[in-house]
């Protein structure tokens, strides 16, 4: 059983390895975006009267964004985009011909790609962030726990994307929906702004949604804000969300397939 899906995991890594130039370009582009973020937030803090925004000091804020730049990419995946393309080209038919669980095979591929990116994207950028941008590590176990939590966040994002992609069965033009999904997720998962910068009412609403468990909560684990017990609590909620979204996807996937028309030749 596991052997079946580990091959998808490996397959994605092999496909990533086929593209050598991407690795180099990634290393070059990362410091630029890190620097811009640091400049923006130093400017904001130097123009504000208070020493902290939303409870974050300047040091914490900068570390927040450095963590996003180094490890944040773990949770982002292109599952829904891939499914959209498969529906559009008719390639979904060939995926359905394989004796595997569709969602788990897609998620295994994603896990493979992201796990590999941890090695070839995150570790080099982490070195750059430490050497040139003064990234701080508050607590060594916390960084490992935060990465584990990020992978749980990736699973939440995978199953959410799978569920969202069922909408693409209704329309051949999936790109606008894909863009909406991407932007909204980046916004309410804390990629652009830490969520505690938002109005309290919005923060309270977001507590009942899975998205702050993608990036925001794992980053807080990294910033050493939580006690060990609280960290376990965060991970438990993450696991609950994974199960809920997995169930949601499977329920609607069955219904959707009944209406699937198998476009393309």
């Amino acid at each position: 059983m596991i052997n079946k899906y580990s091959e998808f995991f490996k397959m994605e890594i092999k496909e990533d390895l086929a593209d050598r130039s991407r690795f180099i370009l990634w290393i070059i582009s990362k410091p630029i975006s890190m620097m811009i973020n640091i400049l923006i937030w130093t400017a904001i803090f130097s123009n504000s009267n208070s020493l902290s925004i939303g409870g974050f000091s300047i040091g914490q804020t900068i570390n927040y964004f450095l963590f996003q730049a180094v490890f944040g990419n773990i949770i982002f995946n292109n599952i829904s985009e891939k499914i959209g393309a498969k529906i559009y080209s008719g390639e979904l038919s060939t995926s359905l011909l394989k004796p595997v669980n569709f969602s788990i095979s897609m998620v295994s591929k994603s896990l493979g790609g992201r796990f590999f990116s941890l090695i070839y994207e995150s570790i080099p950028t982490h070195a750059i962030a430490m050497l040139f941008f003064g990234m701080q590590i508050y607590n060594k176990p916390a960084i490992i726990l935060s990465i584990i939590s990020l992978f749980l966040g990736l699973l939440i994002n995978c199953f959410f994307s799978l569920s969202w992609s069922l909408l693409y069965f209704k329309t051949l033009n999936y790109m606008p929906l894909e863009r909406i999904k991407r932007f909204v997720i980046q916004f309410i998962s804390g990629f652009y702004l830490p969520l505690n910068f938002f109005p309290l009412a919005l923060q309270n609403v977001l507590k009942f949604l899975p998205f702050n468990f993608l990036l925001y909560e794992p980053t807080k684990i990294f910033l050493n804000i939580y006690s060990f017990k609280e960290i376990l609590g965060v991970m438990l909620i993450q696991i609950v969300w994974i199960i809920v979204l997995y169930g949601t996807f499977n329920f609607f996937f069955k219904i959707t397939l009944k209406k699937f028309e198998g476009v393309g030749a």
């Binding site: 397959m11 092999k14 496909e15 086929a18 593209d19 008719g90 390639e91 038919s93 060939t94 011909l97 393309g264 030749a265």
Partner: peptide, 14 residues
């Protein structure tokens, strides 16, 4: 086993 002349089951980049 299914072979579709117009679709590929092989990974393009491998």
């Amino acid at each position: 086993g299914v072979v579709m002349g117009q679709k590929s089951t092989l990974s393009w980049s491998l």
